[in-house]
Design a protein around this nucleic acid. Structure first.
Lengths: 212, 212
DNA sequence: CATGGCCTGGACTCTATGTCCAGGCTGGAC
DNA sequence: GTCCAGCCTGGACATAGAGTCCAGGCCATG
């Protein structure tokens, strides 16, 4: 499949775009005739060359239809949203030769945008109350900055991530506050039981205590 | 120039990439034979089709040279820095047919990154004292300053005095902290029962509740 | 398909919180 | 001195919240 002359022709451009956009974009080269993937660079899903293209909505036969689609929103397999564009490339006779799609993962950008807008007037307007005006806000803040730091939404945090967040909250003495546990559990999208489990692990002097 | 068959062929892809990257990227299609610009999408400089390409450093004649360059840093006319990639597209005979360049203006991203790192690092580095280093210290402090204010030792405070102190502590959300009540009671030299009595009186919507 | 790790809801125990009451103390009125 | 009213106190009690434990479910791995 790699020796398809179209792939040879288009590979440099696709590869270049994929390289420019780093890990956040995939470039897919489709064959509109067989409706299958010819090649893919920097894949974000598990699709591979030979898989179905699922380009149904693109009308590749009508020469009067537009050749460029998007940017439009697409949903990736794992729920992330992407901005995507598609271009139909035609040969001399006006027949669709290949379709090039670029899918740009928008979540990192959205997270960055969230940070930028979050740090607006409120940060300046806060006159620093005696105790925290609302400690649960602070919990949200700690969780939020961690999420932004590692670039994953709360629901996709790993166990280790949650441990790290809990370490920060613990250090901030959050659990010295009444009724804090349910709030933290909710913020971490975790059950109360799990919270206590993680805390126990965190506070265990010897992590390998099962080898006692 | 626009009717060059190569331009017709490549236009969709170039246009799509330019559309995806919004106002921050330009896409340039070069003719390696004449070393001139064939077409340009979303130009960030004042270059136009027909202008010199200035691709001197790219070796388009050696078929064994790589076809993809970059991302490398380029300086735009107005001093902004850009990340750029170039791809050499060859025809069936291995001769360079066109060169595609994508120039992504990095300054908006760098500014955003600056904001992010400026606000991110400190927030992470500081353990965030959330509550007072030790909240019980704060209790002592509140009681202490009141005592100094009215010039009487703790043991000789009147009922009204204790109420006033409690009002301050309450406002400081001290009682939102776990195990705070015994500490406050001790600080006020008062029994736990009395503490609760005073607090009830303080929180009573109608201070003359005995006149119910 | 089996397995192990993790998460979960729920039951349970224990500690802290808050309420109540029967005294005892104090300070002023008589 | 006696009486009284109001306050404080220790402790009994009820309840809510904190923390533990377990059986079962989910999911990814092998």
């Amino acid at each position: 499949m790699d020796d398809d002359s179209r792939v040879r022709t288009w590979a440099p451009v696709c590869q270049a775009v994929a390289a420019l956009l780093g890990p956040y974009a995939e470039v897919v080269l489709h064959d509109p005739g067989t409706d299958r993937i010819l090649a893919i660079w920097n894949p974000m899903s598990t699709r591979r060359p030979g898989d179905a293209s699922l380009l149904g909505e693109l009308d590749t036969l009508d020469p009067s239809a537009p050749d460029v689609f998007g940017p439009y929103e697409k949903l990736l397999a794992d729920g992330r949203r992407s901005s995507s564009v598609s271009a139909i490339v035609r040969d001399a006779d006006g027949r669709a030769s290949v379709v090039v799609c670029v899918n740009l993962d928008r979540t990192p950008l959205e997270q960055a945008a969230a940070v930028l807008s979050a740090f607006g007037a409120p940060a300046v307007a806060r006159p620093e109350p005696l105790f925290e005006h609302d400690w649960s806000e602070r919990v949200q803040h700690v969780v939020g900055s961690y999420v932004r730091e590692c670039g994953r939404p709360v629901e996709r945090l790993t166990r280790a991530d949650r441990l790290a967040v809990l370490a920060r909250l613990e250090q901030a003495k959050v659990f010295a506050v009444r009724r804090a546990t349910p709030v933290v559990a909710a913020a971490l999208r975790v059950s109360r039981s799990t919270l206590y489990g993680l805390l126990a692990e965190l506070r265990a002097p010897n992590p390998k205590d099962h080898a006692r």
